[in-house]
Design a protein around this nucleic acid. Structure first.
Lengths: 149, 149
DNA sequence: TATTGTTATACTCTATAACTATA
DNA sequence: TATAGTTATAGAGTATAACAATA
């Protein structure tokens, strides 16, 4: 089996199947969560607010994290600031830059949004038996480790 | 505990935490897969092609599945047809409608795209030991069951 | 001179409303 | 009269290029 053209021989069939199953399961869950939750703001705005929940960041950092251009992030930040969800403060060490931080309204919105997103998942989780819940608990730990590498 | 305002008492704390962990893990995996893969077509086009892999569908069905308006789906289908990735055939029972099906080019593109998406995941899966792979295998089965309910 | 962020401009994707053809 | 799909038009979100202020 050295000249196969359509399969990747770096991996076993079992690994490829598992990779496909894991990816599809994660993408389907994501899709369902996105569709079931009633969004309080467009996805790209929510994504930025979630990032700012960790800590204030510069527009440039946000653009890198979200993989959008600097002008796009400028627009998104403007929009969030117009809604009173974030506020700009001068950057302590670089007068060209600035720090974007959540306002109390922004924090409230993002907490409501997260609770809303989790609600569909929680209903499903609650239907599983204890063994299945424990299985998901351990698997989730592996997935979180994998994604952070 | 009857008057809590911020937590949902339909679920235990453990269930809420598990729901949040599972959701975040799935969304992070999805995000990584999306960013790591080099898309052969915009996401909404790929999504339609994946649906058509199962079976030909009408524009209306595709719009419902993808949760976009009918005019949006008209544009997407036009674009895919212009690229030779799908083709329209008359609907057998309703002359107002039509069936959209993958062309061989469309099938080839979607197979390449799926392999590309799986590649990052396969590299990560291959780094796990046998027990962890088995854990993910069983957990994935649970997730796929959950999402299909 | 390089970097951070904004403005100018254009393209894509989306939606609502109005229209055509068929059920 | 209702439904499937398209066309017309407008509103978001995105990108590249050019610009301002600062490092």
């Amino acid at each position: 089996m050295e000249t196969t053209t359509s399969t990747d021989t770096r991996f076993t069939e079992a690994e490829l199947k598992l990779a496909n199953d894991v990816r599809m399961a994660c993408q389907w869950i994501s899709r369902r969560v996105r569709f079931e939750a009633s969004p309080a703001a467009p996805p790209h705005q929510v994504s930025v607010l979630v990032r700012l929940r960790e800590q204030p960041r510069t527009p440039g950092e946000l653009a890198d994290i979200e993989r959008v251009s600097a002008p796009s992030m400028t627009k998104t930040v403007n929009c969030l600031a117009d809604q009173g969800l974030v506020e700009r403060t001068p950057h302590p060490h670089d007068r060209r830059s600035q720090l974007i931080a959540l306002t109390p309204d922004g924090e409230a919105l993002i907490e409501r949004t997260i609770a809303d997103r989790d609600s569909w998942m929680a209903r499903r989780v609650a239907l599983l038996d204890a063994d299945e819940q424990e299985l998901l608990r351990r698997a989730t730990a592996v997935l979180l480790r994998v994604v952070s590498e």
